[in-house]
């Protein structure tokens, strides 16, 4: 039980990850798919940030004559980069969805699939 509660940050991560992944797979609406993709990515951000946290740790600033416990800043920095990548991916996906709406007049996957079959 203790390990279960002690590792609660990982349970949060896994819950979010599966929620996002399931949304990507099960939803037919393209915007909802992108939202699911976002949740999926954010769960990994949380995985990184929570692994660098030291309990009671502060920002890594040295104060004269004191031993300061600080959290590992590197995972947070890595995730800053990953957030930028995530924003770019989302922007790209939404731009594509706008173009799809213009061309097909729909953003529902099954309707688009029907139109594509009549295209071919």
């Amino acid at each position: 039980m203790e390990t279960f509660l002690g590792l609660y940050n990982y349970w949060v991560v896994i819950f979010l990850m599966m929620t996002g992944f399931y949304t990507v797979i099960s939803r037919g609406n393209l915007v909802k798919k992108v939202v699911g993709l976002n949740i999926f990515q954010v769960s990994v951000f949380l995985l990184y940030i929570s692994m660098g946290k030291v309990e009671g740790g502060t920002a890594p600033i040295l104060v004269d004559g004191q031993n300061v416990a600080y959290s590992n800043p590197l995972p947070s920095v890595l995730i800053l980069t990953a957030i930028v990548v995530g924003v770019a991916t989302t922007g790209m996906a939404l731009a594509l969805i706008v173009r799809i709406q213009e061309e097909y007049g729909s953003i529902e996957e099954d309707e688009i699939l029907k139109m594509e079959q009549s295209d071919a």
Binding site: F21, L96, D119
Partner: peptide, 16 residues
Amino acid sequence: RRALTATLQYLVLGTI
């Protein structure tokens, strides 16, 4: 126009 849906499919799988 199928290039757009093909790209979106690639984007979703590529991001995963």
